[in-house]
Simulated assay, not measured.
Amino acid sequence: MPEREPLAPAVAATRLAVRRALAPYAGGAVVAGVSGGADSLALAAALAFEAPALGIAAVSVTVDHGLQAGSDAAARDAAEACRAMGLEARIARVEVAGPGGPEAAARRARLDALRAAAAQVGARAVLLAHTLDDQAETVLLGLARGSGATSLAGMSPARRDPDGLTWLRPLLGLRRGDTVAACAAQHLAPWQDPHNADEAFARVRVRRSVLPLLEAELGPGVAEALARTADQLREDDEAFRDMIDETIEDIVEHAEAGIAVSVAALAANPAALRHRVIRHVVASEFGVSLTRTQTLEVGRLVTDWAGQGPIDLPGCRATRSGGMVVFAARA
């Protein structure tokens, strides 16, 4: 009897990560986003191996954004690779449009397509192939934007939407080199997305220049350190969100064309919580995000008010009225 070829460490690591993520969904259905790149092919291969043992119906979805020549052929190749592994494979062709530039619009279209596919097959979870390297890049980009702890917290390994759909990132603890090695060990040929080499995109510059420079100048382990930072900040962010949820109903009330927040309650809280409440109220009521400068200006209506007038914000206006800060829609 011939000896079995030993399992490559990278293949074992991807399978273990996917097995742990899938455990709560035994007997159900899941969807995986598969672009055809090394990360998503390694995810698909691990999913194809682990899902049958858990009685899970696994479906791969390749989203064709139509943003470059040959994208339809690349989508077909990715779907065929998934079918060869034993997965049910689908292709979703989407239109990329809307605010925020092509990257943001493509991301929205991709997530919408994955959500629609999950609804069609009755899946409670969608698997995404982000790795530790993606997490480190996200933290660095958030740091450069000065976006605060929420952005620096990066991507969550599991995020549950209000409708119950959960977005899973089982490979978030693995390096990109692990997924490349897993593909090589399983004789999978990843698609090389030209966008991943286009330095017009900030993320590509971080990937190809900034992170390697940091590793060269500061020593190895920078990506892992950034990922650990994201984990710690995510814990802090979740704690703040819980505190806001517990207190928000007691300090806000409806106002004409908007919402009002108690000055006394805001002033009684530390600045970190006070500013988060302000951002949360504006985001929830008007669907916009405040910058740090805008948040601080609103905060001055609480802590440093000397009769100053209304503050114009995106989509609304903040005004001090007696013991309340009133956020009202702008005409």
Results as ranks from 00 to 15, higher is better:
1 M>G: 07
4 R>Q: 15
6 P>G: 02
9 P>V: 15
10 A>V: 11
11 V>K: 10
11 V>M: 03
14 T>G: 09
17 A>P: 09
21 A>D: 00
23 A>E: 11
27 G>D: 06
30 V>K: 12
33 G>H: 06
34 V>R: 05
36 G>L: 11
41 L>C: 05
42 A>S: 11
44 A>W: 06
47 L>Y: 08
47 L>T: 14
49 F>C: 07
51 A>C: 02
52 P>G: 14
54 L>N: 12
54 L>Y: 08
63 V>Q: 01
65 H>R: 02
71 S>R: 10
72 D>A: 14
72 D>H: 11
72 D>P: 03
74 A>W: 08
75 A>S: 12
78 A>Q: 05
84 A>Y: 03
84 A>H: 06
87 L>I: 02
90 R>L: 08
91 I>F: 03
94 V>W: 13
96 V>I: 04
97 A>K: 01
97 A>W: 00
103 E>L: 14
105 A>V: 04
105 A>N: 08
112 D>C: 10
114 L>P: 00
114 L>R: 00
116 A>T: 07
117 A>K: 03
122 G>N: 03
123 A>R: 04
124 R>C: 08
126 V>R: 01
126 V>C: 08
126 V>M: 02
126 V>W: 01
128 L>W: 02
130 H>P: 01
132 L>K: 12
135 Q>W: 01
136 A>L: 12
138 T>C: 12
141 L>N: 06
147 S>T: 14
150 T>V: 00
151 S>L: 04
154 G>F: 10
159 R>A: 11
160 R>A: 13
162 P>A: 01
164 G>I: 01
165 L>A: 05
166 T>S: 11
167 W>G: 15
170 P>F: 04
171 L>I: 09
174 L>W: 04
175 R>N: 12
176 R>F: 07
176 R>I: 08
179 T>W: 07
179 T>H: 13
182 A>V: 09
183 C>Y: 05
192 Q>E: 11
193 D>Q: 12
194 P>Y: 08
195 H>C: 13
197 A>S: 11
197 A>I: 12
201 F>H: 13
202 A>N: 06
203 R>Y: 11
207 R>W: 07
207 R>V: 00
209 S>C: 03
211 L>C: 10
214 L>M: 14
216 A>P: 07
219 G>K: 11
222 V>P: 05
222 V>R: 12
222 V>T: 03
224 E>C: 14
225 A>H: 07
229 T>Y: 01
229 T>G: 15
233 L>W: 05
240 F>W: 10
242 D>Q: 09
245 D>L: 13
247 T>R: 08
253 E>P: 04
254 H>K: 10
255 A>F: 07
262 S>R: 15
268 A>W: 08
270 P>D: 14
270 P>G: 10
272 A>N: 03
277 V>P: 01
278 I>V: 09
278 I>L: 04
279 R>Q: 09
280 H>M: 05
282 V>S: 14
282 V>M: 13
284 S>L: 10
285 E>G: 01
292 R>N: 13
293 T>V: 05
296 L>H: 10
298 V>N: 04
301 L>A: 10
305 W>T: 04
306 A>V: 00
306 A>P: 00
318 A>N: 08
319 T>Q: 06
323 G>E: 07
324 M>D: 08
325 V>P: 03
